[in-house]
Amino acid sequence: MTSTSIITEGSNIACVCSGDVGRPPGKLVFQKYRRDHILPIDYTANETSIRSSPDSCSYYRTSNITFKVTAKDNHSVLRCAVISTLAEGNVYVESQPLEVYFAVKMPTIIKYPNKTDYLVGLDTSISLNCTTDGNPKPNYLWYKDNQIEAISTRETFTIANVTTTNSGIYTCIVSNTFNDVIYTTRVQMHVCITKEGNKTPIMKQSNSENTAVIVVGTVCGSIILVLCVILLAVIQNRNKTLRCLLVRNRNDRSLDYVNTTQQQDPSLYEGVDHALDVHNYEQLARREHLYNNANLSND
């Protein structure tokens, strides 16, 4: 099996596989392996030829595939296997490990120990590990704050002297080169180193202070509740007084009407009690209606 020799991430490669597939003819299947694990492969297979071999009473098949490689294909191998019911065991051929060139990936910095703040006299050292991936192997450059000169060219930078002067922003720049192109990316991390006396103290309340706050809150709540009850009673009493005044005014107007009508014609009220009852009002109204009709007839 043959393939192209120079491979970069995102490029398409073509592989050709040829061999004896037996009789009846078997099929050629392509597989991709890396560290003994099968990797998914999305490819287009084209059969170029199949012919019989009279000398061996068998068939000879040739197939090829084309697929796009990624960074994960680095150091993987392509396998061309014969699939046949007559094949004994695994019959296949493998390519050489693929050398896939790809640009450095975005790095990350891991601190050890992993803390937000470091204390002078308590922490003895701080390790900053810059991790990335790339082929060819990445190069590392460490910088602190706005310094022009690099402080390290290793993957891991160690702050051996934990003092406040070593606080600052640390930058890790990674790069690699292939096909005469330089690929570079970077990441930054802030390291804070303080003295013990510079830490902000945490204020704590005593139990007596907490108890005083609870008592004051309870008293205030009780006072507010009493005021609400008094206000509700005043509102209800006022509404009751207004209702009494309305009823009284209504009764007064009814008495005035009865007295005026009685003076005009006392006969209308014969047998009718002066109590202000709804039924008496209806009886008076009927009699007044008859009285008015009688007067109109006499006229």
Score class of each variant (00 low, 15 high):
Arg248Leu: 14
Thr62Gly: 02
Ser56Gly: 05
Asn90Val: 11
Asp180Arg: 01
His190Gln: 09
Asn293Ser: 14
Tyr112Thr: 14
Ser254Gly: 05
Pro54Asn: 06
Tyr170Lys: 00
Thr108His: 12
Thr260Ile: 05
Ala160Trp: 12
Lys195Ile: 04
Phe30Glu: 06
Thr70Ser: 14
Asn239Ile: 11
Gln147Tyr: 01
Gln262Pro: 00
Val162Ile: 05
Tyr183Gly: 03
Pro107Asp: 06
Thr116Cys: 05
Asp256Lys: 15
Asn237Tyr: 00
Asp42Gln: 09
Ile224Asp: 02
Thr153Asn: 14
Arg253His: 07
Leu242Gly: 10
Ser11His: 01
Ser52Leu: 00
Ser52Ile: 08
Gln205Ser: 08
Val162Gly: 00
Ser84Asn: 05
Tyr60Gln: 06
Gln262Ile: 00
His190Tyr: 08
Tyr33His: 12
Arg243Met: 12
Asn237Glu: 03
Thr153Ala: 06
Gly134Gln: 09
Leu78Glu: 10
Ile126Gly: 02
His190Thr: 01
Val120Met: 07
His37Tyr: 09
Lys32Val: 02
Ser125Thr: 03
Asp299Met: 15
Thr116Ile: 13
Ile109Ser: 02
Tyr101Gln: 04
His279Cys: 08
Leu141Arg: 14
Tyr183His: 10
Pro107Lys: 11
Ile182Tyr: 11
Glu99His: 01
Lys144Glu: 01
Asp42Leu: 06
Lys240Met: 14
Gln263Ile: 05
Thr165Tyr: 11
Gln205Lys: 12
Glu282Gln: 15
Tyr92Leu: 01
Asp123Phe: 02
Leu231Gly: 01
Val29Asp: 04
Met1Phe: 10
Ala87Ile: 12
Asn64Leu: 07
Leu98Ser: 05
Thr2Gln: 11
Glu88Ser: 00
Asp123Glu: 11
Leu225Ser: 10
Thr70Lys: 11
Gln205Thr: 08
Tyr59Asp: 08
